[in-house]
């Protein structure tokens, strides 16, 4: 009797206990699905594999290999560059769409927002295949161009290269960029734009001096949302990237698959996480510097 009352009383009295019990479902899930796997991944990256035998002794041999064989650093650098291009392309494509919905659409904004997310109701894999059909040797673009007589031979450079990867990823992640930018544009008080016009600025300068700076939080959020997950993507490069469009994620999957070297795959994955974290930190630091300068 008293003990259950005491437990109950403890929860009523303690702010922390109540806080933790509210957090518990998320916390348990995160620990099980995120923290433990990452610890296991980091631990395994220090193991070694020879043939079929995995040895659980501490060793830096995987990291040594990572820095010695140029291919790893090269592919990692290229992946960061590709993701950077994807992020840039996505922002360029997403901003006008977000701007349109925020400022030009007067009625039924919700319908527009739902329409923007419609492509995401189909599987990611299907969307990548769709681009394969679009850009392929006998694909929509080539047969279209031949049909209207612009080219005689199908263009070979559309598919199986870096450009195809950038294009496919930019399309795939568009909604993740449109929505945060839309939110930050929507929050801008329309009277600020009237004030800018009233003070003599035309539409372009008003945009550059008022709308763009005020939407930067959305742009920054969008760039992180697109950049971070695309670095490790392996489906798109595998399907549309060919040999030149290979990314770091493909190396990791190879190590966990055919290569059958899980410790090496873990080491590559850890290096990938570290470099993404570094890039993001430098990016955010640069932004804070620019902000300070403008004051």
């Amino acid at each position: 009797m008293t003990s259950s009352g005491g437990l109950r009383g403890y929860f009523v009295r303690s702010e922390n206990a109540r806080g933790f019990s509210l957090l518990a479902p998320t916390l348990i899930l995160l620990v099980l699905m995120m923290v433990i796997p990452i610890i296991m991944l980091v631990a395994r990256s220090f193991w070694t594999q020879s043939g079929m035998i995995e040895t659980a002794d501490f060793s830096l041999v995987n990291y040594q290999m990572f820095f010695e064989k140029k291919i790893y650093l090269y592919v990692l650098g290229k992946s960061l560059l590709i993701s950077g291009s994807v992020t840039f392309a996505t922002l360029i494509l997403a901003y006008p769409a977000a701007y349109f919905v925020a400022f030009r659409v007067k009625k039924n904004k919700l319908i527009w927002l739902i329409l923007i997310t419609v492509p995401f109701w189909t599987s990611y894999l299907l969307r990548v295949f769709a681009w394969k059909l679009m850009l392929g040797y006998n694909g929509v673009v080539n047969s279209g161009l031949i049909g209207i007589g612009i080219i005689d031979e199908p263009l070979g450079f559309l598919l199986h290269n870096v450009n195809a990867v950038v294009l496919t990823l930019a399309h795939a992640w568009a909604a993740f960029a449109i929505l945060p930018i839309y939110v930050s544009l929507e929050k801008i008080d329309k009277s600020l734009l009237e004030a800018a016009a009233d003070l003599g600025e035309g539409p372009i300068r008003s945009f550059l001096r008022v709308t763009l700076p005020l939407s930067m939080p959305g742009v920054i959020a969008a760039s992180l949302l697109v950049f971070i997950p695309t670095v490790g993507d392996y489906v798109t490069p595998k399907l549309v990237g060919g040999s030149s469009g290979i990314m770091i994620g493909n190396l990791v999957t190879n190590m966990f698959g055919r290569g059958n070297n899980w410790p090496m795959g873990s080491a590559i994955a850890v290096m990938m996480m570290i470099s993404i974290t570094l890039v993001v930190c430098i990016y955010l630091w640069l932004i804070s510097q620019v902000k300070k300068r403008s004051n």
Partner: peptide
């Protein structure tokens, strides 16, 4: 255009 008119506005919520 508003930008071309030699008038300026003090907005209700300042803007």
């Amino acid at each position: 255009e508003p930008s071309q008119r030699p008038v300026n506005t003090v907005f209700q919520h300042y803007a």
